[in-house]
Nucleic acid binder design. Structure first.
Lengths: 201, 201
DNA sequence: CCTCTTTATGAACGATCGTGCTAATTGCTC
DNA sequence: GAGCAATTAGCACGATCGTTCATAAAGAGG
C-alpha cells in the first residue's frame, strides 16, 4: 500500500495520460481506479471531488511542461537563442508525445475554453503563463539588439506559438509528423528574418 | 409533430451548438431531447446510435462551414484575392460565433484527434478538405502570377491556417477578440509580402 | 374510411458516473 | 507493543448514460 504523496503522484501521472486522450471530462474516477488497481473511493478521497482532481491534473501537467520545455530553454541566456529554444523544445515535447494524446494543454484548452469554472481558469492561467513567457523572451531579444528594433514582439510571439499549436493539431489528427517540420521551418524562417544574429542549431 | 427531415435538422442544429461547447462526447441524447422537448427515444431512433448522431453532427457542421466560409469566398475569382477571402471569412466565422463555443472543428478535432473511430475520421476528412482548399487557393494564386513563383504554397497554406487556429483558441479561452486581429494582421502581412498584386480590402 | 408505413412516445434495462458513509488497514509516535 | 492519525477499501445511493422494445399517433394511398 502506498503512502499519500506517492499515491497522489501515481494517480496524477495516469490522469494526465488519460486526459490527454479522452479529455479532462472523459477522465473518470472509476476508470482511473480500475487501471491503477486501487479502490475508487481511495482515489476520490485523495482529491475530494472530480473538479479538484481535474485542477490537480492541470497543475501536474504544468509541472511536466516546465520540466520538459521551459526549464531546459531557460538554460540558454536571454536572446533569440532562448526564444528559439523555447519553440524548438515545445515542438520536441509535442512530437515526442510526452502525453499520448499530444500536447496536454491543447486538448484541455479546446475542451474547456467555453465552459466556465475552475478547470478552465487553471488551463487559461497556464497558457497565459506560456504566452507571457514567449512574449518576454521575444522582447528580451529585441532589447538585446538581437531582433530588429521595430519588430512587434507580441505579434511575433503569437505567430510562433500559432505555428506550434497548428502543428500539434494536424500531427495528432492526421498521424502526420511532417506538420512539426512545417512549424519548425516556419518559426525558423520567421525568426531568421528578424534576427540580427545567427540562430543556434 | 414534425416530419422526419425537419426533426433531423432541428436536432442537428441544437447538437452542433451543444457540441461546440461541451464537445461531441458531452453531447448527450437525453439532454438534447430535454432541450428540444421531445422524447429521448425519438431522437435516438432517428440516428440509431450515438456515434451516428455524432457523425451526422459533424456533417451538418461541415455544411454550415461551407455556407458561411467556403461558398462566399469562392465567389471571388482564383488568386490571392480568393485566398485572402477564405482566411478573412474564416476569421469572421470564428469571431462571429456561428457556433457558441467557437469554431466547431477546432473543438471536435482536439477532442477526437487521438481517439480512433468514425467520428475522428469524419472530423479529419473535413479538416483535410479545408487544408486542401487553402493549398489549392494558394497554388492557383501562384500559378496566376499573383504570388512569387518561388513561394512554397503548401507551407503558406499551413501558416495562414495556423494563425487562424491559434486565434480561435486564444480568443475563446481568454474571451479576448484581439487574437483575431493579431491573426488577421499576421495573415495579411504574410500574403502582402509574397503577393505581386494588391490585396482587396 | 380503412390500411399501412413512417415517426414519436414511454417505460425499462444494465452500466457507469460522482459522491457519502463506515470499517479496516497502515505508518508513526510514545 | 499500544494508541493515534492518516490513508485505503467496501458498499450503497441517486442520477444519467446509451440502448431496446412495445405501443400510440400521424400522413399517404387505396
Amino acid at each position: 500500500m502506498l503512502r499519500g504523496e506517492q499515491t497522489r503522484a501515481l494517480v496524477l501521472t495516469r490522469a494526465m495520460d488519460i486526459a490527454s486522450v479522452e479529455g479532462l471530462d472523459g477522465l473518470s474516477i472509476g476508470r482511473l481506479a480500475g487501471e491503477l488497481e486501487v479502490s475508487k473511493s481511495g482515489v476520490f478521497a485523495r482529491f475530494g471531488s472530480k473538479e479538484e482532481l481535474q485542477v490537480a491534473t492541470v497543475a501536474a501537467a504544468r509541472e511536466v511542461f516546465v520540466d520538459r520545455v521551459v526549464a531546459p530553454a531557460l538554460q540558454t541566456p536571454p536572446g533569440v537563442g532562448r526564444l528559439w529554444r523555447l519553440c524548438d523544445g515545445w515542438l520536441s515535447y509535442a512530437r515526442g508525445r510526452v502525453f499520448p494524446g499530444g500536447c496536454f494543454f491543447f486538448a484541455a484548452a479546446a475542451e474547456y475554453d467555453a465552459r466556465p469554472g475552475r478547470v478552465r481558469d487553471a488551463v487559461a492561467a497556464a497558457l497565459a503563463e506560456w504566452a507571457a513567457l514567449l512574449e518576454r523572451a521575444a522582447e528580451d531579444a529585441r532589447q538585446l539588439g538581437q531582433l530588429e528594433s521595430t519588430c512587434d514582439t507580441r505579434q511575433l510571439a503569437f505567430e510562433v506559438d500559432a505555428l506550434g499549436v497548428a502543428a500539434n493539431a494536424r500531427a495528432v489528427l492526421h498521424d502526420d509528423d511532417t506538420a512539426y517540420d512545417q512549424a519548425r521551418t516556419g518559426i525558423r524562417t520567421r525568426l531568421a528574418a528578424l534576427a540580427t544574429v545567427p540562430l543556434p542549431d
